[in-house]
Design a protein around this nucleic acid. Structure first.
Lengths: 207, 207, 207, 207
DNA sequence: AATGAATGAGGGTTCATTCAT
DNA sequence: CATGAATGAACCCTCATTCAT
């Protein structure tokens, strides 16, 4: 009875989702340590035991949340195509980054979790998040090196510059996300992205 | 007996220092939640009760640490003098930022504490740190606006750009600070600063 | 439809058996408290709810297991026939005990469960096991009294001696049962029985 | 100030004693698994945290209890001196065993804990108790071998016989200890010991 | 001022049992 | 009958804080 299986699987997946969503909100509000299982199950409106039917531990939910987010983000990080006939690198970058920002900013709790990097949750989760950011920095650094080779990018310390650019993006995300709920972004995310890219590319100096 | 008072006060201040230093290290190593009073008093080589003679609570030490750091940082944030006869804004910025970076990077524990922003410690401390960063952003935003008025800075959303630039600096600091102890920075902090400023000012594009 | 009833009953009894066997192994391996319903249903390859269709509770299975074992043991405890023309009491004892030991030692899980007496499972089961041992002691004590009356047995405190003799048997059983699986008994159980009886009857002194 | 140290040590030791005593009673009544920290601290009339100031874990108290008992018991297990001019082995054995029995029987909770052997508490504690009994069996087995060599003891399987004799003693202890509180032993422990030894030495047969 | 033993609320986790399907 | 997801009481343990000395 495949129908039944599908339904059963669906039910399980649904519950899992429900818990993940509750956990994401709680982690976003209280941080990893501040988040209590009590708060999570309360928000998910389930019993204590039910939680452990779906996740091995508090750390496990956090990890699952991270994995999910990281998978989504990875899909949205597209390497720039510098081959002949490709669109301008800037345009490509703009598209890629725009989608990424839109995704992150649209999910405030997720953004909060992702920005909580240095909060040092229990070892493994921290390592996972750190690893993700290292990966991102790597991609950026590589792109910078490529850009330098083809004369597109100024000479710079690729890793340090990557760290700086990542920080820059995080700064923007934080700015977009940490504003009162009633005061939405005054500009479409595409504009924010364009500005962000301009800033990164040409700096703040006039002309 | 003023002499005695002074001595007593001195002794008291010394003890306080001793605890603050121990706490800074522990917070840096373990994060706010991971830091235990036990670890702090052990490193400070004092008794449990003594701790509470000098600080009301764990949150209070964290707050004190933050205040101290923020005071130091405020002193090093100098508004750019755009008056006639002043040195070039870039040079001024470079000096100011260079000192600031040197100060932060030299005190890893302090940097770790400052970067732990979103780790959401107990409400009040988080708010204080957030407030500090808001203040810094404010300074940057104001500078940007001034720069825009005098045509030095391109047109941009001042607050958002300030957020981005602050993130950029944090990214650099994080990069400088989170490297293995045995692998020191490969360049003097002044060079790092220059690069950082170049990046912020003229972006990554060649030419 | 009696046929159906019988079949149903048979099926039910079979399921019950299946659960009992699984439970016996788990109790033997992990002790009463260490045994989890999860382990039992896993070994029995049934669903959680099914377990409770056959047994009221964890304690109930344990009780059933005990009852079963005790019934078996009772059948093998034969009162010595001291009537005229009966075989020698020693020979009778040897036969009876030999069968009993063989039965217990052959079923390690059962032995483990029986020896777990003082593990104090939930009140009632403990009481039941204690009751069984009391019953056995009673039989032994009675035999001793009879033996004393007919001059076969030395004067002694019958109950205490019975307790001692029971302990002796348990010591042997434990010894036979708690050896590595790969190292089987080096002697047939009949020999062990004979030695045990010799020991009980004539003690350890030479001659 | 040694006096202070001594006093402090004394206070600490006293508390430890208090907890150990409470734990012993609880373990005796409820078994290892049935014993809850709650029950222990309730009986000791201390707070939860205090318990963990003196013992690392539930298993640790159990271990301490066992170690204490085993140390006491080891002191009372005296190897028989078979040298020339020594008292009769039987008399020596009687003295040794008498002291041992008196000690164990006088401390019912302790006896209960010691007899809970097979209750399989968490691995390590179980192993420790098992190890102790193995040690005792070893001593008995060795004595038997010695006795066999000097012709005092009948030919027998030393280890199995040791297991049987240990069981015998445990049977007696259990009998002495598991009687209603209001019905004390009807005979002095010395008499019980003598009978036990007689039984072990010459068996139950008349003559 | 300094101590450190004592406290107990609160944390994460387990597991025997129930019940809607 | 059979299922297994859901339950929640109970467990062991930690740690910020207090207070008698």
């Amino acid at each position: 009875m495949p129908a039944e299986d599908v339904r059963a699987l669906g039910a399980r997946a649904e519950r899992r989702r429900q818990i993940l969503d509750a956990a994401k909100q709680v982690f976003a509000e209280a941080g990893y340590h501040g988040a209590s299982i009590h708060a999570i199950i309360e928000r998910a409106a389930i019993a204590r035991g039910t939680f452990y039917l779906y996740f091995e531990s508090k750390e496990a939910v956090f990890g699952a949340l991270l994995d999910e987010a990281m998978t989504e983000l990875r899909h949205r990080i597209v390497r720039i195509d510098t081959g002949p006939g490709a669109r301008s690198p800037k345009d490509q970058l703009e598209d890629s980054l725009s989608g990424l920002l839109a995704f992150v900013v649209a999910d405030r709790p997720l953004a909060a979790v992702l920005l909580s990097s240095s909060s040092t949750p229990d070892a493994e989760a921290a390592a996972r998040l750190a690893g993700f950011y290292a990966e991102v920095r790597q991609v950026i650094a590589l792109s910078l090196e490529t850009g330098m080779q083809i004369g597109l990018i100024r000479r710079c310390h690729p890793e340090r510059t990557a760290a700086a650019l990542l920080g820059l993006v995080r700064g923007i995300v934080e700015h977009c996300v940490t504003r009162p709920v009633d005061q939405p972004l005054d500009q479409p995310i595409a504009d924010v992205t364009r500005e962000l890219i301009d800033l990164a590319l040409v700096g703040v100096l006039a002309r």
